[in-house]
């Protein structure tokens, strides 16, 4: 269920680092808690994110959840799929429904995030 290659946050984001690029999304646990997702608000390209700062939000019919940057860096790409099909976030949160790609400014930050084993313990899975 939860990929080994990802690192996780307590706020239920995941990040996959490849070279100096990090792909960020929310976890399956997060999408289940939110219920049917109806809208995803993502940052503009080129914005610099600081680790732990909010950079967007995910909305269900009656709730809004902020999304926090798991790592610092500049936004390279946002997932255009989500504007037309927010429901993808319910269907494939670890794959097609990634949120943003970030150019990492400090790759060592990744070490502060949870491993898959730690995250699964954290959510009691």
């Amino acid at each position: 269920m939860y990929p080994e290659t990802f690192r996780y946050t307590k706020e239920h984001e995941w990040v996959l680092v490849e070279g100096d690029t990090g792909t960020v999304g929310i976890t399956d646990h997060a999408q289940k808690e939110l219920g049917d997702i109806v809208y995803v608000d993502l940052p503009k390209l080129g914005v610099t994110l600081a680790k732990g700062a909010t950079f967007g939000s995910v909305e269900s019919v009656k709730a809004v959840s902020d999304i926090y940057a798991p790592i610092s860096g500049e936004v390279l790409e946002t997932n255009s799929l989500l504007a037309a099909a927010p429901e993808k976030l319910n269907e494939d949160p670890h794959g097609a429904a990634w949120l943003v790609k970030i150019k990492l400014s400090d790759p060592s930050e990744i070490e502060q995030l949870m491993t898959v084993a730690e995250y699964q313990t954290y959510i009691g899975a």
Partner: peptide
């Protein structure tokens, strides 16, 4: 029951 999810999407 009314489908509020589709209305919002």
């Amino acid at each position: 029951r009314v489908d509020e999810t589709t209305a919002a999407r």
